[in-house]
Amino acid sequence: MGRDHKFQVVHSVTLFAEYLREGRLKLDKSVFAEERCTYQDPCNVSRNGGCGKDAREIIGYLCEDFVEMEPYGDYNFCCGGGGGAIPMAGPFRERRLRSGKVKAEQIRATGASICITPCHNCYDQIRDLNKEYELGIKVLSFKEMFEEALIIPEELKAQEEDEDEE
């Protein structure tokens, strides 16, 4: 990343936000209407990726009850799983879980039942924190939420055989 290429590097969060903005994707907001959602800003996506706004735009199409962590956005705390902490595993695991206490408390304070995060490190870390600190939340990526909430046009569904291919 960061070099001059012939191509542009884009995070999927930005891409998804584009699709929703352009009306290329439609979401059924009622799917998560009963849930309170919060969002974990991954360091590489928000502070170091500039995608915090795009993520919140997606959330606007997805969640009825959304609560920010404190602090949030560019100022959000690291979950503790970054910088290679997850794959280091072994003796580093205990340090990682301990350092996640800040994140766990942030999440608990929101009262959320779903923590959304578009980063595999955060995802794995918060799932571990969920067990370690008994948060009782669901950790989901946007993709996972889309799987449930995307509105699929009837003609694309499996019952009909004659599809127009690309």
Binding site: C43, R47, N48, Y75, N76, F77, C78, G80, G81, G82, G83, G84, A85, M88, F92, R95, S99
Partner: peptide, 10 residues
């Protein structure tokens, strides 16, 4: 250096 910093830049 490996165990006490995740290079999050906060």
């Amino acid at each position: 250096i490996y165990g006490e910093c995740t290079m999050c830049r906060r």
